[in-house]
Deep mutational scan, measured.
Amino acid sequence: EETYEVDGEEQLKKVEKMLRDRNLDVEVEIHNGKFVIRAK
């Protein structure tokens, strides 16, 4: 499992696309105004 923490939606979209391109399962949560992306 990998976890990424990003600020802002633009970064979120980039990271999310990169992970989905690797066929990973992606979950996004918001913690303290930051996006936390978990990939399995």
Rank of each mutant, 00 (worst) to 15 (best):
K13M: 11
H31M: 12
G33E: 00
K13L: 10
V26S: 03
K34M: 10
I30F: 14
D7F: 14
K14I: 14
E10P: 03
K40L: 10
R22M: 10
L24V: 06
L12V: 06
E27H: 12
E1N: 10
K14Q: 11
V36G: 00
E9N: 07
D7P: 05
M18P: 00
E16T: 15
I30S: 09
E29V: 12
R22E: 03
V15T: 04
V6A: 08
V36Q: 04
L19A: 02
I30H: 08
L24P: 03
I30E: 10
E5M: 11
E27G: 03
V6I: 10
L12E: 02
E1V: 14
K17H: 05
E1W: 15
D25E: 14
V26T: 05
A39H: 04
R38V: 05
L12S: 06
F35D: 00
V36R: 10
E27N: 07
I37V: 12
G33N: 06
E16H: 10
F35C: 09
G8P: 03
E29S: 13
K40W: 14
K34Q: 05
H31L: 13
K34R: 13
R38K: 10
Y4T: 01
H31R: 14
D21Q: 09
I37H: 00
V6T: 05
A39C: 15
F35L: 09
K40E: 01
R20N: 04
V28F: 05
V26E: 02
E29C: 15
R22L: 08
M18E: 05
D7L: 11
D7W: 15
L19R: 00
E2M: 12
L19D: 01
D25A: 11
A39I: 15
V6N: 03
K13P: 01
D7S: 11
V28P: 00
E29G: 05
F35G: 00
F35E: 00
F35T: 04
E16D: 02
E5H: 10
V6W: 05
E1A: 11
Y4F: 08
K14L: 13
R20Y: 06
V36D: 03
Y4G: 01
E1C: 15
E10T: 06
Y4K: 01
E9P: 11
G33F: 00
K40P: 04
V15M: 11
T3S: 09
Q11P: 03
K40Y: 12
L19I: 05
E9G: 06
V36E: 01
V6E: 02
K13S: 07
Y4D: 03
N23Q: 08
E16W: 15
K40T: 11
Q11Y: 08
N23M: 08
E16S: 13
E9V: 12
D25S: 12
G33H: 07
I37E: 01
E1P: 11
F35N: 01
K34H: 10
N23V: 03
V6M: 05
R20A: 06
F35A: 02
N32W: 02
H31S: 10
G8S: 15
K17N: 06
I30K: 07
Q11W: 12
V36N: 00
I37Q: 03
I37R: 00
I30Q: 09
V28A: 02
D7A: 09
R22P: 01
L12A: 14
E27W: 14
K34N: 04
T3A: 09
N32K: 06
E5K: 08
D7R: 09
V36M: 08
K14V: 11
T3Q: 09
K17F: 03
D25I: 14
F35S: 02
V15P: 01
V26W: 15
K17R: 10
D7E: 13
G8N: 15
K17V: 07
E1Q: 11
E5T: 13
K13W: 13
G8Q: 06
D7N: 08
Y4A: 03
E27T: 14
D25Y: 13
N32V: 03
V36Y: 12
E10C: 15
R22V: 00
L19Y: 08
V26M: 10
D7T: 11
R20D: 00
N23L: 09
K14R: 12
R38A: 00
I37L: 07
K13Y: 12
G8V: 06
V6G: 04
R22F: 06
L24Q: 05
L24D: 01
E2P: 06
A39S: 07
K17M: 10
V28C: 15
K17W: 03
L12T: 00
K17A: 11
K40D: 03
K34L: 05
F35Y: 12
K34T: 05
E1M: 14
N23C: 15
R38N: 03
N32A: 04
V6S: 01
N32D: 10
D21F: 11
V36T: 06
L19M: 05
V6F: 06
R20S: 05
V36C: 15
E2G: 07
E16P: 01
G8F: 09
V26D: 02
E10L: 07
K40G: 04
E29N: 07
R38T: 08
D21W: 11
E27P: 00
V28E: 01
R20Q: 05
Q11I: 08
Q11T: 09
L12P: 01
K13R: 13
L19T: 00
F35I: 10
E1F: 14
E27F: 13
V28R: 00
N32P: 02
V15N: 01
R22Y: 06
T3F: 13
E10S: 07
E16F: 15
I37C: 11
K17S: 08
M18V: 03
I30T: 07
G33D: 04
L24A: 04
R22T: 03
D25F: 14
E9R: 09
Q11V: 09
